[in-house]
Write a protein that binds this DNA or RNA. Sequence first.
RNA 1: GUCCGCGUAGCUCAGCUGGAUAGAGCAAUGCCCUUCUAAGGCAAAGGCCGCAGGUUCAAAUCCUGCCGCGGACACCA
Length: 590
Amino acid sequence: MTIKDQIKSILEKAVEATLKNNGERTARARTSEECGSATSERSELTIEYPSDLSHGDYAANIAMKLGKIMQKNPREIAEQIVKNIPKNTLIEKVEIAGPGFINFFISEKALKSEMAKILKEKAKYGKSNEGKKKTVIVEYSSPNIAKPLGVHHLLSTIIGQTLNNILGAVGYKTISINHIGDWGTQFGKLIYAYKKWGKKEVLEKAPINEMLKLYVKFHDEAEKDTKLEDLARKEFKDFEQGDKENRKLWEWFVKESLKDINKTYKKLSGIKFDFTLGESFYEDKMDDVLAEGKKKKIFVEGEEGSYIAKFDDENMSPMVIQKKDGATLYSTRDMTTLKYRIGRWKPEKILYVVDMAQNMYFKQLFETAKRFPWYKNEGFHVSFGRMRMEDMQMSTRKGNIILLDSVLEEAIKRAKKIIEEKSPNLKNKDAVAELVGIGSVKYNILSQNRSTDIVFDWDKMLSLEGNSAPYMQYTYARARSILRKAKSAKKEGKTAENKGEIAEKTSQLLRAIPKFKEQLINSARDYKPNLLSQYLYELAQKFNSFYNSVPVLTAKDPKDRLFRLKLTQSVSQILQNGLALLGVAVVEEM
RNA sequence: GUCCGCGUAGCUCAGCUGGAUAGAGCAAUGCCCUUCUAAGGCAAAGGCCGCAGGUUCAAAUCCUGCCGCGGACACCA
């Protein structure tokens, strides 16, 4: 249980007691609905972090809410509530402030015991059982293969992997799935293009490059000749219906693509899937869903013999589930996949980490699924903003693509340059450059609210300043450096300590500790990694501030020294654990 | 046209289950390495939170309308 939860539960009891007392005295209000609404308002009791430190560690606005319902002065109610809070070791003091805020100050003892927990649990600190072992499937990355990964694939891959990590940390049983796009008309296009313009030797030499070239060439040509799209569709249909030559080509393309994509995942590091089940996996399972849907009249005949799902909402266009030529589409495979996952894993939720251009599509998909008896609203679209370039859309079709590999390479290169500048004597420069470079790319994405669009910009993407991975890693390295030295040297304090400043900086840092678990839970609840990254950044800022004005190794009093060392260790542990969830590795020196 | 998302400091963005004086980074100004990593810290500066209404004790946050940007809207995924 987090400290916030404890405060909440203490407050809940106090509010209940207050309401009871009032109910007895003001019998009038009891009969009315007001009492009922007061109760429901109470259940919405929220605890927040005050923006100003002088307002304590946690604050509640419940008295103001009740004040309105009970027609009483909020401050009076607050006073009554506070009276009903029993003495306990968690809370140092409670204050009533402003129009009726109840501010809680956490006792130092409670904070120190939280610190002790960190030192004991180490890498496990932060884990909770919010999820109660319930199963959540997280689908992410899911690239369309036969083309290399572009920068835009970072979003789903990084956000999805991090959500998977975070959900796991708060006690969900997660199943991560890479739903590879290895099926569909795109392969018809590729097969057509290969047959027409491709050369075996060239493709064998540089498979991915050549596939991308063929893909782009197809779209160039298709603009001049509209028949090409139909021909590609035919190739796909033939393939789907058993054409041997096309099947062989497909297998070849898929094999080479996967090899290449896995290389990139490896470079990104920390990208792990419990299952890589491409669309092709559902090839023999689609008939079943199609038949079921047709039988139940969920799928009805549309134009020219296609099958569609219709919606009551006029603004939602129908979803095509089977093409007029009888071939399947992404929707067919997604519906099949949905049924398969529900049947196999019985998840509480299935998260689709996919960009928001597909908002409408997922709405259609889930809306249709609701009509099947096996669907219990498991699907959830974790949408995120799109990545685009300054002046044009990223489009693989047109070849406007920035390769993910090249971004990672550049990131490492830039990190290396700065290392040469700032720490020319560092031993393992290349290893550090890699961790810093890759980390900064990931952190950059995770520190942003996922619904915000991202305009790709080299400098921004690879920023090594401010709220960035290197800042976090640097903070960690500083902390670790202190801890290393603590073992050997025992220096004497030389200068006078500024007591006031020290107390303030120490207290601020100490008080930031319990929020880690709390923000982790918030992050999981809203599927927002940036809540976690923002917390870690704030913690790092507080540590750096502490670092600058509070001597640790040279503390005058040995007791202070010990406490500050423990605090430093606690903070470094949180940074390590938190960054690990974000997929950012820490470094001991940089 | 309809629907979805966004509009916050010069720039890039946090904050949005309503709450106290709207926060960071970059850029620009000044200061701090004879104490633990200056990839750092401190100070000051920078805001009609797109516009106009509404709800509320309280609105950047909720509702309505408008403007601007992005996206989606039947056989691509």
